[in-house]
């Protein structure tokens, strides 16, 4: 069985843990760098990206997280996690973990009062996904290797590049585990691949 970590510095950690467990994988909350060695995949949860970045710096997580991705271990970022994965962020001098070739805008839909939920068509899924957007970012442009999985009013809100997956919305706030299950499958396949 695959073991998936949830970066537990701040944010909606518990919800991801439950969703991972419902999707048939082991879940661990990652608060220390050394824990990265024990997991096959990692979820960067929703929360405040500024706060997470400060704590990432504080505990020397930045390089180990980059290395985790460079070893082709899968990472799934939701909302703040998407921002952490992007190579370029509008209005900010430098990116964070910078593993996905995309340019993102923070709070792109507006403040909390503009936050919303909407049914979303996701590539490869038959039924729409009930997507919850909270002070959400969106992706402005993507590189050639990035596959767009969903758009909302022409804004890119879900994407995949190799072992990296991201959504601007919060699948963890719903009971719909399809995206987590998809990620668990990515992790299991990659685990087999990396074992060869």
């Amino acid at each position: 069985m695959a073991t998936i970590g949830v970066l537990g510095l701040q944010g909606a950690v518990r919800e991801h843990v439950k969703s991972i467990e419902r999707s048939g994988a082991n879940a661990v909350i990652v608060k220390k760098v050394e824990q990265l060695a024990d997991i096959d995949g990692l979820i960067l949860p929703g929360g405040e990206s500024t706060t997470m970045r400060r704590l990432i710096n504080q505990y020397g997580f930045l390089e180990p997280l980059k290395q985790f991705g460079q070893q082709n271990k899968p990472i799934f970022g939701t909302c703040a996690g998407l921002i952490l994965l992007a190579k370029e962020i509008v209005g900010e001098a430098s990116p964070h973990i910078a593993l996905m070739d995309m340019k993102v805008k923070r709070n792109a839909f507006g403040r909390q009062r503009e936050s919303f939920e909407a049914p979303l068509s996701l590539k490869g899924m038959n039924e729409p996904f009930d997507a919850v957007f909270i002070r959400a970012p969106y992706i402005i442009e993507v590189g050639d290797d990035v596959e767009v999985l969903a758009t909302h009013n022409d804004a890119i809100v879900a994407a995949k590049q190799g072992p990296f997956l991201c959504t601007a919305f919060h699948p963890e706030l719903t009971d719909d585990d399809r995206l987590t299950a998809y990620f668990v499958k990515m992790v299991e396949e990659q685990k087999k691949e990396l074992a060869c």
């Binding site: 929360g47 936050s115 919303f116």
Partner: peptide, 21 residues
């Protein structure tokens, strides 16, 4: 169909603050 100010959107905002100050 886009819905604003739903329980999920309002409570979800607080969920994102968890573990924080």
């Amino acid at each position: 169909m886009t819905n604003q100010g739903t329980d999920r959107v309002k409570r979800g905002m607080a969920e994102m603050q968890k573990g924080g100050v």
